[in-house]
Amino acid sequence: MLLQLKGISKRFGGLIAVNDVSFSIGEGEIVGLIGPNGAGKTTLMNLISGSLKPDAGTIGFNGHTISGEEPHRICRRGISRTYQIPRPFPDMTTLLNVSVGVFCGKKRSHMSLGDAMLDASHCLEFVGLFGKRNMLARDLSLFELRALELARALATTPRLILIDEVMAGLNQAESRRAIRLIRKVVEEYHVTIVWIEHVMKIIMEATQRVEVLHYGEIIASGSPHAVINDSQVVEAYLGEKIA
């Protein structure tokens, strides 16, 4: 088991964002995390990647307990994330953006800037942004920003990537390109992916297993088809009457 969550809870004042969530992710899986808006998916992502500390419960990664560690240490262990609203470094070029990620790779933290930029070029080429390597990150289009996020996450040589709503705002053609890209990532880099997504078509196509979050709790878990037909899930999304 690569990632194990046991009884994770997080509350913000009176609001319980995540309530006693437990699941595990094995190596090489692509797991989807779905749920209606406000269910706590991004909070869960923040908890795994270390931006927030859980109030209760533990997170185990590859045998180590990582809950409560600093985000940069968690990144060095091999967990990377992308952001729902892309957060590049706006004043730097694409190449430099990804180079920042390269320095986190294990056992390579003392490389020079030139070598890092070389590695970054490889990552950029992989996602197809090499032609735009000298553009300032603030001038990129949405799809390119998402690709940049992915490249930056890949540059940190992760074992687990947390992908947060990569399809939002993309049109049909771009969505297909994005799915192909992520499939390529899984094939070549052998990473495990936890994928938060709203677009059901993608979840059906790309993921092997799905966890459903509702009001901070896991209400269903299993293969995409099984989960979609689960009455509790339908009720959560569409309301009681339709279920």
Binding site: S51, P71, H72, M92, L96, F103, L113
Partner: peptide
């Protein structure tokens, strides 16, 4: 400034939280 330390400085200035999540010990 033209070495990796300069890059880290730029990253910290632009977005500290993201740099932290990318493995930079802020």
């Amino acid at each position: 400034l033209t070495s990796r330390i300069g890059l880290f400085a730029a990253a910290i200035n632009d977005d500290e939280e993201v740099a932290n999540n990318l493995g930079l010990n802020i």
